[in-house]
Amino acid sequence: MLKPGDPAPPFDLECALDGRTARCSLAKIPSELVLIFFYPRDFSFICPTEVIGFNKALKEFAAEETTIVGVSIDNVDSHLRWARELGGIAYPMLADPEGSLARAYGIFDENEKVALRATFILDRRRKVAYSSSCPLNIGRSVIETLRIVRALRTGQLCPADWTPGVEFGPTGRDF
């Protein structure tokens, strides 16, 4: 699994976006940060809570100059139907049917043949600024991910459970 500081593998994949098929290329994403969240499968019972959760928080992430990208091994048709089932998803849902992108990020579960629940936040230079993964049966916290994004954007030393408004750590340290 890629760790902070690693260069992010580029991608240019088909995706479902706003109810239609499109292409999504990392090189063409202009925002300061890119949040890539991998999830195991469409049409499951934990993934939708995350997919909808990130969709609901889309504006807050956009306010933090962050583009959200979802990825699973399902194809675009499945993503389109899944997004329709969920009431519409306004960020690109990338199709990675071979799992090649998941493998490039080091989070492909070879036993289950799906991507782990892994989150990567890429910085302006498209290097990994943050990465995490959790078991297939546990959903991620959208609020926590947003907190990380906000913390990363401060460029400061953020203590545990830092949230906007809380004092930063000592300055002038190389971290």
């Binding site: 019972f45 934990i46 499945s78 139907r81």
Partner: peptide, 20 residues
């Protein structure tokens, strides 16, 4: 409950239903 839902979903898929 989601573990039951996921488990049952997998079983139904194994028996020939599409995931959807």
């Amino acid at each position: 409950p989601y573990t039951v839902q996921e488990g049952l979903l997998d079983e139904l898929c194994k028996e020939g239903l599409s995931r959807e």
